[in-house]
Design a protein around this nucleic acid. Structure first.
Lengths: 199, 199
DNA sequence: CAAAACATACCGTCTGGACGGTTTTTAAGC
DNA sequence: GCTTAAAAACCGTCCAGACGGTATGTTTTG
């Protein structure tokens, strides 16, 4: 309602482009991600798409960065206020992943990230870079085996979200999370002994 | 040395075809999986490849089934003899995944499975079917949250194997496994209360 | 009017697959 | 055991369609 008579709205178009690309990947698989499909779904011509993103790679790159940014924000928000909380980062990581509701388009994009990660070594490397940077920032709290296990389990959940595995069932998921939190409250966890990083 | 003078050896050719397809996917990415590439790598013509597998899908299907069969055998072998061992199946699952050495071509195929799982919903469904069948067979021991967590973590490790994430480091991995086994030896785990299956 | 935001038409390449040969292996008939 | 016919294994070529990308308009915006 800001400017109703304005016909062009490039920012909205770019957003729609990314949105549609994500939807295509998740719902119809990677091979369905063609310039023509994305353009059609977004109600633009292929030329129009190519105008905003000068190539397929640029499109995917844009998608990647958008999703990572979003995820980063989510994790940041999920961080507990007490900075010395054990496994602080990994807990937030798990919380965000576990909260994914695939019926919400916004959150569905995380599936895109997972897809890109497992299919393209390039994005995989960039993702690892991101994770390791966070890990370094939270070295005091998140280098313990328990923290790693939390993130590992989160990745497992994440993966199961992609294909609706047996662990994507909400009630099962709740049970797993409850178990993990129960573990957290137990002294069964050995004292955090951050290992010297192996490169 | 069975039949040295035999020029044709279709079974060996089929095996090489699958082998090369797997290598191509893992080393050069999914888009490198073309009929021509596979045929050339296997030392066969495209026509020859099409003779054994009447289409690309047939090739991929063959690869999928072979890998699943291999994984199934590995897990079967890793099963503890005592049938009532808690989390029996999930422990074997984790053991197999954790033992993956990406430098061994045979084991590298698991990466192929992961790739196919995350890229094609169809194979994802078939995989879920496999897992749920096993879960049903081991319902007495593997429906607990701890068992699920084990498999989730295994999936996380599996995924990290693909792109060499921070958890693919051997020493880190050992530490995680040790932690998981430590947990297993603890009474921190609530009694197994198999939830009623949700569909 | 200039630049950005689109659309249309088109091209080159690649890939899956069809098709028709050729050679090898197997099986049958004698 | 030898001949021969058929089936299986395999090759090389060609083609239709899809896809990414370019080139060239046309409209909108400032």
């Amino acid at each position: 309602m800001n400017r109703p008579q304005r016909k062009n709205n490039p920012d909205a178009v770019r957003a729609r482009l990314l949105e549609c690309a994500a939807r295509l990947i998740v719902d119809e698989g990677l091979p369905a991600l063609t310039l023509e499909n994305v353009a059609r779904e977004a109600g633009v011509s292929k030329g129009g798409l190519l105008h905003h993103y000068p190539g397929k790679n640029a499109l995917i790159d844009g998608l990647f960065e958008e999703v990572v940014d979003w995820f980063e924000g989510q994790v940041e928000d999920a961080l507990e206020p007490v900075e010395t909380t054990p496994s602080r980062f990994s807990k937030a990581y798990l919380r965000v992943v576990a909260a994914i509701d695939m019926s919400v388009p916004e959150e569905r994009r995380l599936a895109v990230l997972m897809l890109m990660l497992s299919s393209d070594p390039h994005y995989c490397a960039r993702w690892n870079q991101w994770v390791e940077a966070r890990l370094q920032r939270h070295a005091e709290t998140d280098l313990t085996p328990f923290a790693r296990t939390l993130r590992l389990a989160a990745d497992g959940l994440w993966l199961s979200d992609l294909g609706g595995g047996p662990d994507s069932n909400p009630s099962v998921r709740r049970e797993i999370l409850a178990f993990l939190e129960h573990l957290d409250a137990t002294e069964a966890i050995p004292a955090g002994s951050p290992e010297q990083g192996g490169q």
